[in-house]
Design a binder for these strands. Structure first.
Lengths: 213, 213
DNA sequence: GCAAATATTTCTGTATACAATACATCAGTT
DNA sequence: AACTGATGTATTGTATACAGAAATATTTGC
């Protein structure tokens, strides 16, 4: 995997996170500290720290003095996530300058290409991963550290959302084409068009007139 | 204070947070776990959990295996915070419906009034607190749990920012007048005007033409 | 046979002990 | 005198022990 921090807490955090985002740990599942500790061959301490951090990212909810369980995403929450996500990505587009774009466009292109490649070889999970990276790079291009930090929190939920939904189903091909188009719009400074396309890209439905981005 | 959770970690978290936001713990100050533990008369465990949670909120930065220190806010970061803040509050305004407003308008009005009162009696710290609550209520009125959660993360930094800046300095009077005006706009459904006013309220400068909210 | 009370078990919350790492101090060599 | 290496100290990271709360199983009374 891509874990390996310099301390156990980080490693466990990454492991648990990827298990949740893979669906190996399903929503609603209870996660007793000692069980996990035995499973991973460490003490409860790093487990506790990892679980508490996961709860900050909304992947786990802790009932005090009771138990912790993997959160499930409701329909309402799914919509809420998408709405906020669009807003943040559009903000990033607004903040991107020709200079900041210059620095990051290589990464954007690479993520897009790798997402395409993963789809070509039929590795859906991998394509999810690279898609996530693409959007993270888009956010990073804003060079607004606060935005980046907040989006990383949201990203965990976005990824969790993809397990439940059967995304890509309809317009699998369009998906990476849109990535390329987004890059092109950014290069040309067509921000308005870029935001509209982002809406369609994220919502998988056409942009409704009158919505403020 | 307003601490008192049902476990020590929460209490310590609230205590440390308020100390940072009061300026009692200044930016750059190192916070060794054992020193704090002795100070608060608890063991290192709850301290550790509190500090790690604070670092998720960006109030503390942890150098692994080294030390943790209270973060200082740079000029750049201050701007970044404001930009994201405006965006989130404007999103909330867009999401507010007459129904959701109905439920929350009492709280908004109360926060505004209490902020005014605190200013009248010259209690600046208290007015900060109620101002924060006002904006939190505005966000809550969106009834978008994801937005609310993200904003709560941002709120910690917003409050930290106020220590450094000498806000209110210029337009102290205008400040609560604007709160009232915001409520009025919301009631009348004048979202565009509300967003523009929010910009001025947060940035303490007039809304520039051509900026996308 | 069923409900309420009680015992047992399980799990979390906290304290403490130990290990590992980073940093400072100081001695020795050139 | 400056540099390198060793030693000591402070601080974090991890394991473990124990107390108390919550959940579960068991017993008791009817």
């Amino acid at each position: 995997m891509e874990s390996k921090g310099q301390n156990l807490s980080d490693e466990i955090y990454n492991l648990l996170k990827s298990q949740i985002l893979n669906g190996k740990l399903a929503g609603g599942e209870k996660i007793p500290e000692e069980t996990l500790a035995r499973e991973f061959g460490v003490s409860r301490t790093p487990i506790r720290e990892a679980v508490r951090r996961l709860s900050e990212y909304g992947l786990v909810s802790i009932k005090p003095r009771c138990y912790a369980e993997v959160t499930s995403i409701s329909e309402k929450e799914a919509k809420d996530i998408a709405r906020v996500r669009i807003n943040l990505e559009c903000l990033a587009v607004n903040l991107i300058t020709p200079q900041s774009l210059e620095k990051n466009i290589m990464n954007l292109a690479r993520c897009s290409a790798e997402c395409q490649y993963a789809l070509d070889i039929g590795d859906r999970a991998l394509s999810f991963e690279h898609d996530s990276r693409f959007h993270l790079e888009l956010i990073r291009s804003s060079e607004n550290s606060v935005l980046i930090n907040l989006y990383e929190h949201l990203d965990a939920k976005i990824q969790q959302l993809r397990i439940n939904q059967n995304l890509y189903g309809i317009a699998l091909k369009d998906y990476t084409i849109q990535h390329e188009q987004i890059i092109r719009y950014l290069r040309e400074g067509k921000k308005e068009e870029c935001r509209v396309l982002l809406y369609e890209h994220i919502m998988h439905s056409p942009y409704p007139e009158g919505l403020s981005l």
